[in-house]
Design a binder for these strands. Structure first.
Lengths: 215, 215
DNA sequence: GCTGACATGTAACCCGTTACATGATTCC
DNA sequence: GGAATCATGTAACGGGTTACATGTCAGC
């Protein structure tokens, strides 16, 4: 149900074609949503039929024709209504964290390898978002653009960047944690007595497991 | 594709019925996945047909019959194979952040109201996860349970708690930011000259927009 | 000659959600 | 008497992904 408002919202900022909307979903808006062209085009047609947006076909030379959409008053009304409504909480689907949860089934070395690979992916994404922030900041300064629009976009971008920084930090801490248990990973710790419970507890406290309780 | 491995992974920890799997998805596993009973039951039947798990019907008195599933070697093999594979990055769908991105379309007071309401939701969830952490930690200490399983479960739980703490912190910072621009929210700032660009810039720097660039 | 950007779509399929269906027991 | 818990499922619908289809131009 939110793709609709993702499109309406974007068209409240500027007029755009389906192709341009997709690019925005892949860049800036990737922090909170993602979509495919094969979903965007039918949705645009649906919104036009519903009378919330209006499209104009523009003939180009050397390039295919394009259809530039514009939001109308009915669309803007529905958008504002949606903006005041309570949203569902995000439905998280994080296959990597699911993997981590079950990683006691593989060796400590494999766990560390997986954590390090994933950390790299996150780092890449962080750099991408930081580049977007740098570019958008530069354009704001050039135009001395002051508006609530700039404020909210910056807030969302910061949220995205913070999230990446935190994910990377968690990867580093967790790699360290697993490394501390490397030698005893596959053993039944209680039977072999290679480590006592006090040491085990101390490691997890240092990791911050209890600090997270805020006590 | 990951629901399959969510179920296999859970059955690698202990035997369970569909109903019990659902409860685990709602509690601990809610940090990285969520699912409905109407999806879990057919999936369990599918996995049994594929020969990865085995179910035994148990007749109960005073309660309906239940079917307890157990993972077999073929299932454990597929799980380990999946654990070593590279996962897709999480496909984020966060309707609230989408709202925030478009909130220049509503008044500053409405924005602050929305941010405060959402903050409350996140706080509720934080308390829930902290309770899970407290309970699980208590049970670990009681049994002096030391294992890689405990380590990985703790790591994932900490990730979930950290995420909530960061989301709440971001809400607080953003509320403060919007409050700073409250008086000029609906105005065209450049035209009215109610605020100069240096002040505008200073506010965003204080918010941490540039700190996030790591420069 | 190949890849990638530009540009718009359809069709098949898979996954996920909501609603429906059933029925006993326990607690308020 | 009503709500919640235990327990398993089917059916309809809606949303999302992958594959297919088409064609030009620019740059390597």
């Amino acid at each position: 149900m939110s793709l609709k408002f993702g499109i309406l919202g974007l068209l409240s900022k500027w007029n755009a074609t389906g192709y341009e909307i997709k690019k925005e979903f892949d860049d800036y808006m990737s922090i909170f949503w993602h979509s495919h062209l094969s979903q965007i085009y039918p949705e645009l047609n649906k919104l036009e039929k519903e009378g919330l947006i209006e499209g104009k076909t523009i003939t180009q030379i050397g390039k295919p024709d394009k259809k530039v959409y514009e939001i109308n008053e009915a669309g803007a009304d529905q958008l504002r209504e949606w903006l005041l409504a309570k949203q569902d909480e995000p439905k998280i689907k994080d296959p990597f964290l699911m993997q981590v949860f079950f990683m006691d089934n593989i060796s400590a070395d494999d766990v560390i390898f997986q954590l390090k690979s994933y950390r790299k992916e996150r780092e890449k994404r962080l750099l991408k978002l930081q580049q977007i922030m740098r570019d958008s900041w530069e354009s704001i300064k050039e135009r001395e653009a002051m508006s609530s629009r700039v404020v909210m976009a910056t807030a969302v971008l910061k949220k995205g960047i913070d999230e990446e920084i935190n994910y990377i930090k968690w990867c580093d801490e967790t790699i360290e944690l697993v490394e501390a248990f490397k030698d005893v990973w596959d053993d039944d710790l209680q039977a072999t007595k290679k480590m006592d419970f006090a040491t085990f507890e101390e490691q997890l406290i240092q990791y911050g497991a209890l600090k997270a309780l805020g006590e």
